[in-house]
Write a protein that binds this DNA or RNA. Structure first.
Lengths: 199, 199
DNA sequence: CAAATCTCCAAACGTTCGGTTGGAGTTTAA
DNA sequence: TTAAACTCCAACCGAACGTTTGGAGATTTG
């Protein structure tokens, strides 16, 4: 195995196999890069370098750059709503939901960013059937927690709570122009308050 | 002036000057391409071809690709909220605002897309001071129309109404997974209804 | 133990891309 | 009328990029 003169090692140990770890390292690095720069702005070479894996392995495991991007989205975007349940009833339910969503976005900003890149760069969502099923469950739970007369109340409410909770993550520049630099605590409090009003 | 054999003309008329038109054509084509594909995915060559202008002109007028992108954002993103005033009071004011925002997004989807690309691809917003002033005026008007006790009510309300109004434009895939393929009329109605509840 | 298969690598390839150059013609100014 | 300045173009350049190739070594199989 040849190294360039500037990094020639005294002894190159042979490379042991670790198929699962290789794949996971590539996915983790790809998640970072695609979250930051999107599909078009992400660089295969830079992803591989950060993973510490040869970029040829990307083609072996994922097919191509598009396959890698899809794999990242498949593993990440479901996590956005994963484990967030509807608890309580009425205004409490909506406030808690909004707070949980806000916290999720605050702790994992890359998830919302990946969702946005998916929206802008893909014609169709990834994992549509499983994500659709997850959303349907949330809608049904919301309809139980916040009963309403109109037939689509659950779906409309869920979408509005998401819109409120993610407004500053989806549109950070506009948010800052509107609200100034308020603290995450203040922002969270406002999100919970506004969502409660939808009851 | 040389043309390739496949498009050799019998006679090449010399090119007259039209500096303003050239610039506008480039901006229009750039708006289309950057709205669709973002900065990283937009192609200078493709933009120039669509404008019918030599791509070297882009460097003359805008400096580089980044300058072109900034020029597009500067001319487009202010149009998103431009001319949208707060009318009425209470729930009516919020409902009308949400409806107007929804209509603006529906009629000019490229504006929201450009806003999203700005959010994802730029560290700072363009035209921050003029946009900030415009937002401050809207916040003040909202505080008049929907008086509230908390000090930041106007800003929080505006951001929430925007979040509700643009939820399906910002996150179209997630919206469709949640709501199914409802009609724009139904979607608009839901947006107005939900926004009214924030009063 | 040897052959087959698999994983991993460095290097290379062909294409794409943003940006520049040399020059032709248009318009303006003296 | 001529020179200067400006606008516009085709072609080009160097770098970047996604993808492939040839081969070395690790692991599995018979």
């Amino acid at each position: 195995m040849y190294h360039s003169p500037t990094e020639r090692l005294e002894y190159d140990p042979p490379v042991a196999w670790n198929t699962q770890e290789t794949r996971q390292k590539l996915l983790a690095a790809a998640s970072t890069h695609f979250s930051r720069s999107g599909f078009a702005g992400g660089r295969v070479e830079a992803i591989a370098r950060e993973a510490g894996i040869n970029k040829e392995r990307i083609y072996q495991y994922f097919g191509n750059k598009e396959g890698l991007f899809a794999a990242v989205l498949e593993s990440e975007v479901e996590r956005l709503l994963d484990g967030i349940d509807i608890t309580g009833a009425g205004a409490d339910a909506l406030g808690t939901l909004a707070g949980d969503l806000f916290d999720r976005a605050a702790q994992h900003p890359r998830l919302v960013r990946l969702l946005l890149w998916e929206s802008l760069e893909l014609a169709e969502p990834v994992s549509a059937s499983t994500r659709g099923a997850g959303c349907a469950r949330m809608v049904a739970a919301l309809e139980q927690a916040v009963p309403r007369s109109d037939a689509r109340g659950g779906a409309d409410t869920l979408l509005s709570v998401i819109g409120i909770a993610f407004a500053d993550t989806c549109l950070p520049h506009l948010s800052r122009l509107i609200s100034g630099s308020d603290s995450p605590e203040d922002r969270r409090s406002a999100v919970v308050q506004q969502a409660r009003r939808l009851a």
